[in-house]
């Protein structure tokens, strides 16, 4: 289900405060990160995990995440042994932000203790909502690669900068643009049509507009704008 625009699959278990989800299969638990940790980190630049075979007590550190805005440790939801780690995420940490519930899983754990921090979603919806609000988490249609906070900047200047950025970025690059220009929503629609890039989402939060823009293949009409 969606909680404040953030995806929390119904069938998973969550340790809300630790920002962890888990899925049991064949007697093992696959764990990954929930949207809270991804958002406050600003996108992972580093993920570390204790090596396979390590025993970790409940609540103790089984790894860490780091992004430009935040460092945190990952806590084991129960006494366990690490039986698998996702090398794809260790090599490319942002995978855990972009595909948190499938390809971006972190570790496989064999549970050895009875007590657990995990609960089914139905039992923690209110906690999840409170946590998202407390940390002021925003979830969007896609996890952004780049953020542009352009408060107090005129729309034309924002679009000019966005176009320059898109020009030099690889296809599929996702940009989160924040603007307080009241004409931003209209201007952004026009920009999308002119340049052929995709405007995936427009969200209004008080006086601020949030846009998620994705670079489409072969688009680079940037400098005609603004």
């Amino acid at each position: 289900m969606k909680i404040l625009d953030c995806e929390y699959p119904d069938e998973l278990l969550y340790a809300v405060e630790d920002g962890i989800w888990a899925r049991e299969s064949d007697g093992e638990f696959v764990v990954g990160v929930a949207p809270t940790l991804g958002w406050i980190s600003g996108g992972f630049t580093s993920v570390t995990l204790k090596p396979v075979g390590t025993k970790v007590a409940r609540g103790k550190t089984m790894g860490s995440i780091e992004g430009p805005r935040h460092f945190d440790v990952l806590r084991a939801p129960f006494d366990c042994t690490v039986v698998g780690t996702n090398s794809a995420v260790l090599n490319s940490p942002r995978l855990a932000n972009k595909r948190p519930y499938d390809e971006g899983w972190l570790a496989k754990l064999k549970r050895t203790g009875r007590e657990t921090s995990l609960v089914p979603l139905v039992e923690c919806v209110a906690d999840v909502r409170a946590r998202l609000q407390e940390l002021r988490v925003h979830c969007f249609a896609a996890f952004p690669d780049v953020e542009m906070y352009e408060i107090g900047v005129e729309c034309a200047a924002v679009l000019s900068k966005l176009s320059e950025l898109i020009d030099v970025s690889p296809t599929e690059t996702t940009v989160h643009v924040v603007s307080d220009d009241p004409t931003a929503a209209i201007e952004m629609e026009r920009w999308q049509m002119r340049t052929g890039n995709s405007l995936l989402e427009t969200k209004r939060d008080g006086a601020l507009f949030h846009f998620i823009v994705k670079k489409r293949e072969g688009t680079s009409f940037g400098h005609q704008d603004g």
Binding site: G42, P68, R69, V146, E147, M148, Y149, E150, I151
Partner: peptide, 14 residues
């Protein structure tokens, strides 16, 4: 930032 390529680090864009 030193060469002027960016005006602020991406995490403090304002």
């Amino acid at each position: 930032e030193f060469t002027g390529e960016v005006l602020a680090p991406p995490e403090y864009p304002t």
